[in-house]
């Protein structure tokens, strides 16, 4: 299989153009799933009546149904009841909802691990619920569960390729489009694969730097967390976020 390298260089600008949209969609989805995740986790940890059950249903439904069906449901299903959304909006929306459901579980494992005695000491100091959330649950729970969330975030970048199915011109779509014109299957697919691996590798690097910055192990020492318990939580929540 002789690879046509000059062709690979030729289509690189096109692919990178598609990559821009991939990154943009992923970044927006990561941001929104972070918001959904933290909010949902707090609601569930504080056991807010009704809302807490709604979050549980949301998480279970989203986690147990395929992302591609969500995409089709929003893009092809909603117009029949009179709601038409542009493809890019559907892309960001579905990825955010999907990532948000996983993020709720990621963060909940962290916020649940904030020891009851810490929350009780907060209450005895006269902190309001809002202050307990702001100063105890979020900083501690967020730090512990961030590594689990970064797995979800990286899955989001990879899953942005699902949007090819509804014609969002992200990198995979651009690649498929070129393949239909030029029939240079090897060259295009290999270029795309290498670019994805590089992007994922860079993203993992950035997230590991953020994790180090949050430095949950060092900062939590002497705050009622044992290392064993901590790594246990991270191992458990991290593995289930594949795809």
């Amino acid at each position: 299989m002789g690879l046509d390298f000059s062709y690979m260089i030729e289509i690189l600008p096109l692919l990178l153009d598609g990559l821009k949209l991939t990154i943009w969609i992923s970044a927006a989805a990561i941001f929104f799933s972070l918001l959904i995740g933290i909010t949902g986790a707090i609601v569930r940890t504080l056991k807010v009546p009704v809302l807490s059950q709604l979050v549980t249903v949301f998480v279970e439904v989203i986690r147990n149904t395929p992302l591609l069906v969500h995409v089709f449901f929003l893009y092809f299903g909603l117009p029949t009841i009179g709601i038409t959304l542009p493809a890019v909006t559907v892309g960001i929306l579905t990825l955010s909802i999907w990532g948000g459901a996983y993020a709720v579980e990621n963060f909940r494992s962290g916020t649940d691990a904030v020891s009851k005695s810490l929350i009780e000491s907060g209450q005895s100091l006269g902190l309001s619920v809002g202050q307990i959330v702001r100063y105890i649950i979020v900083p501690l729970g967020f730090r512990i569960s961030f590594p689990a969330f970064s797995n979800t975030a990286i899955s989001l970048i990879k899953n942005s390729a699902y949007m090819t199915s509804i014609g969002v011109a992200e990198m995979t779509f651009v690649a498929m489009d070129r393949m239909a014109y030029d029939f240079k299957t090897y060259e295009i697919l290999i270029s795309v694969a290498v670019i994805y691996l590089a992007v994922i590798w860079i993203a993992s690097f950035i997230f590991s730097r953020i994790e180090r910055k949050l430095d949950f192990n060092k900062k939590l020492k002497g705050r009622g967390y044992s290392r064993g318990r901590l790594s246990n939580i991270i191992r458990r929540t991290g593995e289930n976020t594949a795809s």
């Binding site: 995979t172 697919l189 994922i200």
Partner: peptide, 19 residues
């Protein structure tokens, strides 16, 4: 694990026949 599953599927589908 690094490749998006969409890309893995396309790789298998398009490259195996060419091989």
């Amino acid at each position: 694990r690094g490749l998006p599953i969409v890309i893995t599927l396309f790789l298998v589908f398009f490259i195996l026949p060419e091989a």
